[in-house]
Nucleic acid binder design. Sequence first.
DNA 1: CCTAGGTGTCCGGGGTAATA
DNA 2: TATTACCCCGGACACCTAGG
Length: 713
Amino acid sequence: MGKSYQLMTISKAEIRLGAAPQELFCVPQDLIPQWQAQREKFFGERFEVIGSPQDARRVAREIRDNPEETRCFITHFEALSRVGRKRETLPEAIVDGRTALALRLYDYKQEKRRAAQPEADPKNAAKGHEEADPYVHYLDDPDLAAAVTTHDRCPKCAADTDAGWNGEVCTATKYCVTHGRACESGGGGAGCVLKGCGYVHTRLRVKPAASHLTNAFRDGVKCVDELTEISGDSQKSEALRALARGTRRQGGAHNYGGTGTPQKNYAKDTFWAFWWAFGGGSVAFPYGYDGSQRYAEEFNVQEVLHGRREDGEEHLKVRKKTLPILTNVSQFWRITQPSVSRCRKEQTGEPLVPLTYHPIEVPMGVLQQKMHAYWLKNFPDYFAWRYPGHPLVREGLVEKWAAGLGQRWRLEAAATMPGWDPATLEWPAARATLGEPSNWTPAMLKLLEIVLERAGCGEKVLVGSCLKDLGPFVAGALAEKGVCANHITEVRGEGAERTTQTKSPKKRARAVREFAEGDAQVLCAGVQALKLGHSLEAASSVALLGLPDSWFVLDQFVERVHRLTSEKPVNIYVIIPRQSIAQTKWGVLQKKGDSSDLAFDGEFLPRDEKPVNWNEELREMRRRGIGLNAAEDLVPEEEVLAAWRKMPPLLAALGAASSTSAETPRAFPAPARRPRPVSEIPAGPFEEVSLFDPAPFETEAPPRKQRRRRRAA
DNA sequence: CCTAGGTGTCCGGGGTAATA
DNA sequence: TATTACCCCGGACACCTAGG
């Protein structure tokens, strides 16, 4: 929470130095309670919440009337991006665009003429500004009576009343967006895209919240948390940009932003953040609203491809590509240095608990290994079966591009959660060879063991995966052993109908809150789901099965737990099935982590960071036959399941432990076989530590457990 | 082509208060 | 007491973005 405290302090300081005494903070919606708590703790006051365009309008009015009053407000991105709309049936309008435009133009001119000589038109004086429906008089015109209006036809998709338009709501079936409702091929032709309509003729646009707030806080202080949200052109981003609309200081003289991760790979990621905070087209940041292209070209290396000599195009740049390599570093520093305060957690001077990564290698299961090898070899056949008419199948190029066509996910499933893999389930050939895939792999057991062990010590554990379906499975398994585990997905249906979806924001927030503040001991989440904001310092362990692709995502996930307010040392357990794709991924991640701190720390090395070529990696795996000859290091899935069944539930374990020892209950023993030493794992940005912190695992292993382990080894 | 997370919008169900 | 109006919430759907 160092960031929020800094922002609040700066904002107070600005007011002392002469800014208008109104503060506006904009933060992710989930975090408003957290910010309120911080505000109360440090400044003894609470924010007023702006949650809708109506609130924004009211606040803007109040500030205009009372500019000297000291007030602080908080709002969230969604409230800003919400387009202001009023529920009100719209007047009947002419559907044909050209006719409508011509009539509006005519109307506009009439209006102007009336405004120029108001007394000349007695009708106008009588009606005042309360002119009712501007379209009514067109409909009275016999020439226009035949025009098609919204009474007969949906203005968005042109469906008539027979096709599902009722004058107000369009319930028409899907249609081809490219060629309209009259598409000859019925949506099956080249370039056809089928989409539903759902247009409703009852909404009136009003000004969105941002437009009120920009003016109201022009002289006050505006602070945005997670400033990286304003990259790209999403609605959220546009709303935030609107909050600083105008050139130079018109957008507000006191704009501040906080972010944990200023830059990923491309300079354009930072453009809007700087534009927002420095003021577009100002001395500090000489790029305007349309300057992002130039900015990207100036600070990223550009790769251009000239045309071919045979075509006479050698002087032409036919293709241009922006590379994720920063250039003009000195210029970049001159722009950013005066305006950016970079403060890492380690530098706050606050005590920060240590963070330790424990990569744990486990053997693969027999079936798991078989599945891994099978998909490494047979993916092209599956693809040909699934998409018989696909151009790549006809050209015989599936093998070359397999990584991008889904092979990587098949291997990911094999390494993480074989029972999930939809391809294995739907392809009869795979089922014939592999049978029913089982989730009970040694990796899964290790994950559950670690969670039980840590939970047994009274800790809270965060479980992460790149497959969201791991959540319900792990939570279910843990529930069997008496552990209260939450997950953030929703499971619907049974058997083949079964689907899982991420819970809606509110439900998700509840699941997270139960974990952060309530009784839930374990939270299972997709690694990408908790990127922003959430503070989970109640947890002190993170267990990962199924790694994300980017270091950034992994780091963000871990940082939910490793915070300035964390009290216990944080341990990250990364479970890696030996010789699976997870091992390759882990290596790649560590390399990426090496170069993640770019220009801002002044430790920048202009290195050539190539994206990973997964097609190449998979070919290499296939060539070396990885996973094909490792039979001596495998554990049958039935044994894993049996071992899990035998494991005592948490409550029983706690009872037993407390009766024999007064110390922290230690229900689960250390693995008899030590994982590979760190020296054999490629060095990365991690502290070098023993893979398993020996302290909590020192108790004697019960004999039953050791027997299983020896067989596994 | 595959997977993930996320936002915006409408609709319908359930609950509640107002009204006939 | 029955009916109606209204609000809130969650589900369904469309659509967007990021990443490979």
